[in-house]
């Protein structure tokens, strides 16, 4: 199944290649695992030399979601995510994020994942639950999203000005 996030009009903060402020994570699937190799610069820091914990959580969320897609389960939304941090993620250091499915039924998928240094040390881990969305549901959301984009096209930076 193709990854719905690879569609040309998708602007996903985690994986879309065209999002200028996104993480641009690229994933590959091998057997039951989905993984991404990356290194983040100072734009994503909290303390100097340390990647923001929220960004770490975002990477894990994206990795788990990609595991869902790559296992042929279609589109899904995160409904629960538990992140645990073992060590600060350092800026400009190679890391790998790995996700896999724990269990799945027709409605919910449970996945787990971790981020580790290229050398193997564990940085953070997560478990998450994902609610499956039908193709019809995704199409409805895309329609709403495109409608909103069109509304904002005439505004500077695409931001809707309130009270005008």
């Amino acid at each position: 199944m193709s990854n719905p996030k690879n569609a040309v009009d998708i602007n996903c903060f985690g994986c879309a290649p065209k999002n200028p402020i996104g993480l641009k994570l690229e994933f590959e699937a091998v057997h039951r695992q989905c993984s991404s190799r990356f290194s983040l610069g100072p734009d994503y820091e909290s303390y100097p030399g340390v990647i923001h914990g929220g960004i770490v959580a975002t990477i894990l969320d994206e990795t788990l979601a990609q595991a869902v897609y790559h296992h042929g389960n279609g589109s899904a939304f995160t409904v629960g995510l538990r992140v645990r941090y073992g060590h600060p993620m350092e800026t400009n250091i190679p890391h790998v994020a790995i996700g896999e499915i724990i269990r799945a039924d027709s409605t919910l998928i449970r996945a787990s994942g971790r981020i580790q240094r290229d050398t193997g040390e564990l940085i953070a881990a997560a478990v998450g639950s994902f609610y499956l969305v039908s193709a019809k549901g995704m199409e409805a959301m895309r329609s709403i999203s495109l409608e909103r984009c069109r509304d904002h096209l005439h505004e500077p930076n695409g931001v809707k000005m309130r009270g005008k």
Partner: peptide, 11 residues
């Protein structure tokens, strides 16, 4: 022992 090892043990 390290914080990374503690997390690994817990998992």
């Amino acid at each position: 022992i390290s914080s990374m090892k503690v997390l690994q043990i817990i998992l």
